[in-house]
């Protein structure tokens, strides 16, 4: 049994939208284990991004409790959450969110500059196969390449946890598969905990476990005895 990294207990999140309260997440219970590949599945509006934001310390829950090992994220201050993200979490977004005025290498340096034990930025780019594009700006890279730079940036600070929000959502299937392969490798080779959120059912087969969300609730949590690599996934 792997050690628990994150514990989510009875967590809910309610957004105040003008005069209306919108419950985005309700009574969520989840345990994230060290080194696992967890896929969070669900249609648009099911609450998966909300859950990811809470796991990554980008937001605080309205109720319930979230613990990262010994640290209580529920009651953490803004600066504690910032420090938590800085040292423990890597993020990969659907729209890459690279700084357009920095080269690939410099985008990675954005993360390494503030990390405690960072990788060499060029090595991070090498890991994603882009060391020869280090001096290129985002506008000179394809979508897949941009996402790989974003992954390199997320890895470069040596985080415990890699959170990916629809990492293939903006890519064609071939490129998407390559990006998933990269995340698969990161999980296996670096033993890094990876959480991916997606609305694509087949991707769930990659993970050690898959949690399904619907209308703000975790409706199922299934264990995959034999995860399959992205190349074998039918899209």
């Amino acid at each position: 049994m792997k050690q628990s990294l994150l514990e989510v207990k009875n967590v809910s999140k309610i957004y105040q939208m003008g005069e209306v309260q919108v419950p985005a997440l309700q009574d969520a219970d989840l345990e994230v284990r060290e080194g696992e590949f967890l896929v969070i599945l669900g249609p648009s509006g099911s609450g998966k991004s909300t859950l990811l934001n809470l796991l990554g310390g980008m937001d605080r829950p309205s109720g319930g409790n979230i613990r990262f090992q010994d640290q209580d994220l529920t009651r953490a201050s803004d600066s504690q959450l910032t420090s938590f993200r800085r040292h423990n979490v890597g993020f990969v977004f659907q729209f890459f969110n690279l700084v357009p005025t920095l080269t690939a290498l410099e985008n990675v340096q954005v993360a390494t500059q503030i990390a405690r034990q960072p990788m060499d930025p060029l090595q991070a780019l090498r890991m994603v196969g882009l060391e020869n594009r280090a001096d290129h700006f985002p506008s000179q890279l394809s979508g897949g390449e941009q996402q790989r730079v974003a992954i390199a940036r997320a890895l470069a600070s040596n985080p415990r946890l890699l959170l990916c929000d629809e990492p293939t959502g903006n890519l064609d299937s071939t490129t998407g598969r390559a990006v998933l392969r990269l995340l698969w490798d990161v999980n296996r080779k670096l033993n890094m905990t990876v959480i991916i959120i997606t609305h694509s059912q087949p991707v769930a087969r990659m993970g050690h476990r898959a949690a399904s969300l619907r209308d703000g609730r975790i409706v199922s949590l299934t264990e995959n005895k034999e995860p399959i690599p992205p190349e074998e996934i039918e899209w």
Binding site: T82, S83, F84, V89, F91, L98
Partner: peptide, 16 residues
């Protein structure tokens, strides 16, 4: 604002 959001996510403090 998008760049700022990214920096925040990466763990940069407001002052940084």
């Amino acid at each position: 604002e998008r760049e700022i959001g990214t920096f925040r996510v990466l763990g940069y403090t407001k002052t940084e």
